[in-house]
């Protein structure tokens, strides 16, 4: 039977990619952020996941306003990254897991989550950077990818409550999968930040720490707000916490151990965090 080994959560802002290209990991500005990752890398090297189910949001690489799915599940044999327009390197492609993707799609729709299916899907920095952070410089990514994309661009966004429920449906689907893979769940983005408007630069450590403190043991606490309220609390891009909430749901309701946590302000315009939860 497939096993969910844990959940890896991290911020994903493009600025991180720039810092990696410049080799800035040890500079005083970046070190406090990058220091969060050695324990996660060590844990992954020991636990050796085969597949990563990644909840993230597209930033205008794969989806545009012509078609904007609330929830989309990748079902491709391969996922490519591409030029996003602001000078990041184009990252390595990802090997997909179409059989598992189609099992999830089938199970989710039967479970009344009417997701969009994508047999072709570009993945942007929201997947590439989290992988680059924990597997720096590898020849090929050591895990297969099942990407799940959540709309954080165009309102109405799905509510935190709905995202947790989606994650739980993904969990049920993974539990009924016949393979024997070791599965890593990932949630990327956040934490609090706002790029647009006169409140640009807004961050909210109080809300971020509320999320970090409750995610493992009491994720329902994060569902007490609407998406609009989250935008107010976490900033308009801080709504990316929806990816974390869905990912937490996909881990199931077994007890969890917090293996590592790092919280730092600022990287770029963002309050950044990394978190690793081990199942059991």
């Amino acid at each position: 039977m497939a096993k969910i080994i844990g959940g890896y959560f991290t911020s994903h802002v493009p600025g991180i990619g720039g810092a990696i290209v410049r080799g800035d990991q040890e500079t005083p500005y970046w070190k406090p952020f990058f220091d969060g990752f050695p324990p996660i890398r060590a844990w992954l090297a020991k636990e050796r996941p085969d597949v990563a189910v990644v909840f993230s949001n597209d930033h205008g690489l794969n989806f545009f306003l012509d078609k904007m799915p609330t929830f989309a599940v990748g079902a491709a044999p391969q996922y490519d990254n591409a030029d996003e327009g602001w000078g990041l390197p184009v990252y390595k492609s990802f090997e997909g897991h179409p059989a598992l993707s189609w099992h999830l799609i089938d199970a989710l729709v039967r479970d009344e989550f009417d997701i969009t299916t994508c047999q072709k899907m570009l993945v942007d920095h929201a997947v590439s950077i989290p992988f680059e952070l924990v597997w720096p410089g590898v020849e090929a990514w050591p895990v297969k990818l099942v990407p799940i994309s959540i709309n954080t661009v165009q309102y109405p966004l799905p509510s935190p409550k709905r995202c947790l429920a989606l994650g739980r449906a993904v969990h049920r689907a993974l539990m009924s999968w016949g393979g024997d893979e070791r599965i890593l769940i990932c949630g990327t983005g956040g934490l609090s930040h706002q790029l647009d408007g006169p409140r640009a630069g807004f961050m909210n450590p109080e809300y971020d720490l509320f999320c970090l403190d409750n995610l493992a043991a009491n994720p329902e606490a994060l569902t007490g707000h609407s998406a609009e309220e989250v935008a107010e609390l976490a900033g308009t891009q801080g709504v990316e916490i929806l990816n974390w909430i869905a990912a937490r749901g996909a881990m199931g309701d077994t007890p969890m151990t917090e293996v590592s946590r790092n919280y730092h302000i600022p990287i770029s315009n963002t309050a950044a965090a990394s978190l690793l939860l081990q199942a059991g």
Partner: peptide
């Protein structure tokens, strides 16, 4: 551009927000 600050002032404003992180909340390791 959006806040009417200089870029340096805006960056300094971002850095200053670290002061709001409570003591001991930055790093936790198993």
């Amino acid at each position: 551009l959006q806040t009417g600050m200089s870029v340096d002032a805006f960056k300094a404003m971002l850095v200053r927000q670290a002061e709001a992180i409570p003591q001991g909340a930055r790093v936790r390791e198993a």
